[in-house]
Deep mutational scan, measured.
Amino acid sequence: MDETGKELVLALYDYQEKSPREVTMKKGDILTLLNSTNKDWWKVEVNDRQGFVPAAYVKKL
């Protein structure tokens, strides 16, 4: 969790967005987890953008 109590995830792999609903991340990025109710796609925030990334590409910290 960060200082505001939000849950964080670590990008395990690079991911290039394939639609406007997704976000690009690089391996090693720390992202804010917004929603993990879907087992396949998690909603995150990175670089002031919100979108989805494959759940298998990130790990909760």
Rank of each mutant, 00 (worst) to 15 (best):
M1W: 13
M1P: 13
M1H: 14
M1F: 13
M1C: 15
M1T: 13
M1S: 13
M1G: 14
M1R: 11
D2V: 15
D2S: 13
D2R: 11
D2W: 14
D2C: 15
D2M: 14
E3T: 14
E3S: 12
E3A: 14
E3Q: 13
E3D: 14
E3G: 13
E3F: 10
T4D: 13
T4I: 13
T4S: 14
T4W: 13
T4E: 12
T4K: 14
T4L: 13
T4P: 13
T4R: 12
G5W: 11
G5M: 13
G5Q: 13
G5E: 13
G5T: 12
G5C: 15
K6C: 14
K6H: 12
K6M: 09
K6N: 10
K6W: 12
E7Q: 14
E7R: 11
E7S: 11
E7Y: 10
E7G: 09
E7T: 15
E7A: 10
L8G: 03
L8P: 04
L8Y: 15
L8E: 07
L8V: 08
L8M: 11
L8C: 12
L8K: 11
L8T: 08
V9E: 00
V9R: 02
V9A: 10
V9Y: 10
V9I: 07
L10K: 07
L10W: 07
L10A: 06
L10M: 14
L10V: 15
L10H: 04
A11L: 02
A11R: 01
A11W: 02
A11M: 02
A11C: 12
A11H: 00
L12E: 04
L12C: 08
L12M: 09
L12I: 11
L12K: 04
L12N: 04
L12R: 04
Y13I: 09
Y13E: 10
Y13N: 08
Y13W: 11
Y13R: 15
D14N: 07
D14H: 05
Y15V: 01
Y15S: 01
Y15C: 03
Y15A: 00
Y15W: 10
Y15L: 01
Y15D: 01
Y15G: 00
Q16P: 07
Q16A: 12
Q16F: 15
Q16V: 14
Q16N: 14
Q16H: 13
E17S: 15
E17K: 12
E17M: 11
E17I: 06
E17W: 05
E17A: 15
K18H: 08
K18D: 06
K18G: 08
K18E: 07
K18M: 11
S19F: 06
S19K: 07
S19H: 11
S19R: 09
S19V: 04
S19G: 12
S19E: 08
P20W: 08
P20L: 09
P20E: 12
P20C: 09
P20V: 09
P20G: 08
P20I: 09
P20M: 09
R21Y: 12
R21L: 13
R21M: 14
R21S: 13
R21G: 15
E22Q: 11
E22M: 05
E22D: 05
V23T: 05
V23K: 01
V23M: 10
V23R: 02
V23D: 00
V23S: 02
V23E: 01
V23N: 03
T24R: 05
T24K: 04
T24L: 02
T24Y: 03
T24D: 04
T24V: 03
T24E: 04
M25Y: 02
M25T: 03
M25H: 01
M25Q: 01
M25E: 00
K26P: 00
K26E: 06
K26L: 08
K26G: 05
K26M: 09
K26I: 08
K27G: 05
K27L: 05
K27V: 07
K27Q: 09
K27E: 07
K27M: 08
K27T: 07
G28P: 00
G28N: 06
G28W: 06
G28R: 02
G28L: 02
G28K: 02
G28Y: 05
G28F: 04
G28H: 05
G28D: 05
G28V: 00
D29N: 06
D29V: 04
D29S: 07
D29L: 05
D29Y: 05
D29K: 03
I30V: 11
I30M: 06
I30R: 05
L31H: 03
L31E: 00
L31M: 13
L31T: 01
L31S: 02
L31V: 06
L31A: 08
L31C: 10
L31D: 00
T32E: 09
T32D: 05
T32K: 12
T32Q: 11
T32F: 12
T32W: 13
T32I: 15
T32H: 09
L33Q: 00
L33T: 01
L33V: 06
L33C: 07
L34R: 04
L34D: 01
L34N: 02
N35L: 09
N35D: 15
N35K: 06
S36L: 05
S36R: 07
S36N: 07
S36W: 08
S36Q: 09
S36A: 13
S36E: 14
S36G: 11
S36I: 06
T37E: 14
T37M: 10
T37G: 09
T37H: 10
T37A: 12
T37S: 14
N38F: 07
N38A: 08
N38H: 11
N38Q: 08
N38S: 09
K39F: 07
K39V: 10
K39G: 09
K39R: 11
K39I: 09
K39T: 11
K39S: 11
K39M: 09
D40G: 08
D40L: 11
D40W: 15
D40A: 10
D40R: 11
D40Y: 15
D40K: 12
D40T: 12
D40S: 10
D40P: 02
D40F: 15
W41M: 05
W41G: 00
W41R: 03
W41P: 00
W41H: 02
W41C: 06
W41N: 01
W41S: 02
W42V: 07
W42N: 02
W42P: 00
W42I: 05
W42S: 02
W42D: 00
W42Q: 01
W42G: 00
K43Q: 12
K43W: 13
K43F: 15
K43H: 10
K43L: 15
V44L: 04
V44Y: 00
V44M: 02
V44W: 00
V44P: 00
V44C: 04
V44I: 07
V44R: 00
V44F: 01
E45L: 09
E45F: 06
E45M: 11
E45C: 12
E45H: 06
E45D: 06
V46C: 11
V46E: 04
V46N: 15
N47L: 13
N47M: 12
N47H: 13
N47F: 12
N47P: 11
N47K: 12
D48W: 07
D48E: 10
D48V: 06
D48K: 10
D48I: 06
R49F: 05
R49P: 00
R49S: 06
R49M: 07
R49E: 05
R49A: 07
R49W: 04
Q50G: 06
Q50M: 10
Q50C: 11
Q50R: 11
G51H: 02
G51F: 09
F52D: 04
F52G: 01
F52I: 06
F52R: 03
F52H: 05
V53N: 00
V53H: 00
V53A: 02
V53L: 02
V53D: 01
P54Q: 02
P54D: 02
P54R: 03
P54A: 03
P54T: 01
P54Y: 02
P54L: 04
P54N: 02
P54M: 02
A55M: 04
A55H: 03
A55Q: 05
A55D: 02
A55R: 11
A55W: 01
A55L: 02
A56V: 09
A56I: 09
A56T: 11
A56E: 13
A56R: 14
A56P: 07
A56Y: 09
A56Q: 11
A56K: 14
A56S: 13
A56M: 12
A56N: 13
Y57Q: 05
Y57F: 12
Y57C: 13
Y57D: 04
Y57N: 06
Y57G: 08
Y57H: 08
V58E: 02
V58F: 05
V58S: 01
K59P: 02
K59R: 12
K59G: 08
K59S: 10
K59Y: 09
K59T: 14
K59E: 14
K60M: 11
K60C: 11
K60A: 08
K60W: 07
K60E: 07
K60T: 07
K60P: 10
L61V: 11
L61T: 06
L61F: 08
L61N: 03
L61M: 10
